[in-house]
Amino acid sequence: MVEHIDKFRMQNDLRYRFDFLSKFINFDQNDVNMLNTLAPIIFPLLPALVERLYKKLYSFDVTKRFFHLRNDGFESFPVNREVGITLDFVQTEYRKDMFSVYLKRILTQGQWDDSFIEYLSRVGQMHTPKGGSAAINVDYMYMNALFCYLEQLLMEVIWNAESLDQRKKQEAMEAISKFICIQNDFLTMHYGATWNKETSCANIPIVRLTKCFFR
């Protein structure tokens, strides 16, 4: 029997959208538990992993340029080039810390409840002008590339993890792949024109994030 999916509701109900996508890609609590299992493996490697991620962003002028712009919260920052303290350095270090916090939350979240789903949605929204600041407008292509490269880095960590047998490595890679798929969908829906930005998960407060991974 073919299951009916309400296309309109998919564009207006975040939980409904997530439930459909999860069912389609077979993302369930076992995958969440596997992400939790990866936490103690990935956490010690996070500084080096995030460093590689931002080194990649700095290796292309189209992505590096975002870190040279003076953004909210850094308007009065005093530049001191003599000691290597520049605006782009401070802003990049701040973004690195934010990305580390984001990854830690992904790996430690025990239940992907409505509040957490809203958090993932907000990660997508905050990189667009829809997030509340017209100054923030990172092309979707760069966001997609960022998460694609993140997936490669995480896969590398899993592949080299001596504490995981081959079966666990396979399960871990599948869980990471599904997480990237879900986050990427929550990116694309805010870059497109079909998502109703006024809607969210029912009866929960809107997650207010003011800083993104680029700016």
Rank of each mutant, 00 (worst) to 15 (best):
L103V: 12
E198A: 07
V123S: 09
R70L: 06
S163G: 02
L38Q: 10
H190Y: 12
S163M: 02
K211L: 06
R208Q: 07
K55M: 11
G124R: 01
Q170G: 08
P78F: 02
D6V: 08
S76W: 01
K56Y: 13
V207K: 15
F186Q: 13
T86R: 11
F8E: 15
A48K: 08
N196C: 10
K7D: 12
N184K: 12
K130C: 09
G84S: 12
H127D: 10
K55L: 03
W195Q: 00
I106D: 03
H190R: 08
L187K: 06
I180G: 10
F60K: 13
T63N: 05
D28W: 00
L164G: 05
K64A: 04
L38P: 07
M173P: 02
N33L: 01
Y16F: 12
L150Y: 06
M141Q: 14
D19S: 15
Y102V: 13
S59I: 09
R52V: 02
T210G: 11
P129K: 11
R95Q: 11
F67H: 04
T199R: 06
G110D: 11
M189N: 00
L21F: 07
A135E: 11
F67P: 00
D114Y: 02
M141R: 14
K23G: 12
Y94S: 15
S115L: 10
R105A: 06
E151I: 08
A161H: 05
A175P: 05
F67E: 00
V2M: 10
L164E: 02
S121K: 08
T128Q: 05
E171F: 02
F214Q: 04
V32M: 01
I5T: 09
L209R: 15
E162S: 11
K211E: 07
N137G: 08
I117H: 01
M143F: 05
L107M: 11
L57T: 10
I42G: 05
R81V: 07
A135P: 01
F60C: 06
F27W: 03
Y102K: 10
F60Y: 15
W159L: 05
P44E: 10
M141C: 13
I106C: 15
I158D: 08
E51Y: 14
L49C: 11
D19W: 02
T37E: 13
P78A: 01
A135W: 01
